[in-house]
């Protein structure tokens, strides 16, 4: 039986899921801020009457954005300070990304990958830009509702429109992200690692060979791998036995 390699720290796992849950709530209530749910009978589903009331929907939207903004800001600062830029695109990612996607549907062979797949790095920047635009325009909306800034009529219109349109882009990006993970079996171990933080050694060796070599190959990195294992044991999981 193969061992396991630590892929994500608990902080990264938390970042992902806080963003995912608050993002889903924001998407749903964001759609509710458009006049949709009453027209499409959603508000008539038992338990969903609140979706027909703009004040309630906006209150939930605002509340979810507490967590969303916090995690966006945390993500930017935490990983920048730690100089963790592995998710930023590299040269050749477009070509290799296409090869990865083609391999998912059974055409050709996947190129060797680092910790992240090339297509993941491209997707990260895409969704990152969308999230940044949503966050900035959302914060501007909060500030002008607080009357801490006064926007000229044109700026207020443009800001609102950018927020609404990027909201739609976020919805598309979210659907594509979830679909790619769920529809292709080759991605399922990645989903598991997004919950546990750990990934099968075999999987890492095959799909992320460059990263695997870095973790396993260099003598000094073996030490790091052990540190990671010990750290997880300290965090109180049974995971230390999985090694």
């Amino acid at each position: 039986m193969s061992g396991r390699i630590k892929r994500h720290t608990i902080i990264e796992v938390l970042e992902h899921w806080v963003m995912a849950v608050s993002g889903i709530v924001l998407l749903f209530t964001g759609l509710g801020c458009l006049p949709l749910f009453k027209r499409y009978y959603i508000a008539e589903i038992p338990g969903f009457a609140w979706t027909g009331d703009f004040n309630t929907v906006t209150t939930v939207h605002y509340t979810a954005s507490i967590f969303f903004l916090m995690v966006v800001v945390f993500h930017i600062f935490y990983h920048s300070i730690r100089k963790e830029f592995g998710l930023l695109p590299k040269k050749g990612d477009v070509k290799n990304g296409i090869r990865v996607v083609l391999a998912m549907i059974g055409i050709g062979k996947e190129p060797p990958s680092d910790k992240y797949l090339p297509e993941q790095r491209i997707a990260y920047v895409g969704i990152g830009i969308i999230i940044l635009l949503l966050t900035v325009t959302g914060v501007i909306k909060i500030l002008k509702n607080l009357e801490w800034i006064v926007l000229s009529p044109i700026c207020e219109s443009v800001n609102t429109m950018v927020h609404t349109l990027t909201g739609f882009l976020f919805m598309i990006a979210f659907i594509v992200h979830v679909a790619i993970v769920l529809l292709f079996k080759s991605n399922w171990p990645l989903l598991k690692s997004m919950f546990t933080g750990w990934i099968d050694e075999d999987y890492a060796r095959h799909r992320h060979s460059i990263w695997y070599e870095k973790v396993k190959g260099k003598p000094e990195d073996k030490g790091i791998s052990e540190i990671e294992v010990k750290e997880t044991c300290r965090e109180g999981g049974d995971t230390c036995q999985q090694k």
Partner: peptide, 14 residues
Amino acid sequence: PIGKAVLSMGFMGM
């Protein structure tokens, strides 16, 4: 009031 909490938590995140 929630808007203020959003901004505060943004700073807390940082």
